[in-house]
Amino acid sequence: MNKYITAYYMDEEDLMKGLRQMKAKGLKISDVLTPFPVHGIDKVLEIPRSRLTRVGFIAGAVGAAVAFGFQAWVFTIDYPLNFGGKPFFSVPSFIPVTFELTVLFAAFAMVIAFLITNKLSPGAKPLIHDERCTDDRFLVVVKVDDDSSDESISQIKLALAEAGAEGILLKA
């Protein structure tokens, strides 16, 4: 069971200033909860650029291959039928469906990957530190081990206070 120390800011510019100070002091920030994406926070928290785009690219390529391959197979091998004198392997005709399935595969794969990597799912029960994080508070969360001493906890609290954070709380 982990313990958390939380503290909040009421403005994203104060938050960014505070985060830089905490980082300079070597405080390990576990997470920051914000009501909207804060510009530049990725750099301070060293969050790597998301690789979800690759999932999208691969799934899109698969979608294109499946759609084109399937149509070509149906019309040249499985059931060649003459429609309006068009050739059986009529590439221009296959493009619209190929395009649509490319987009469909890429979009769904990306969203599913997004939900999985974020551990988001219908009915997930997240730990809600502060209900106002989705409203107007910018919450800094620091994880502390169960057996960490009171001294280190108060040090973290002090660092948070020095960085101008409000409402410092220790939660079990």
Binding site: G84, G85, K86, P92, S93, I95
Partner: peptide
């Protein structure tokens, strides 16, 4: 390009 080509190709 595709729109123009495809429509002319299709209507023949």
């Amino acid at each position: 390009w595709f729109s123009q080509y495809m429509l002319i190709w299709y209507a023949n």
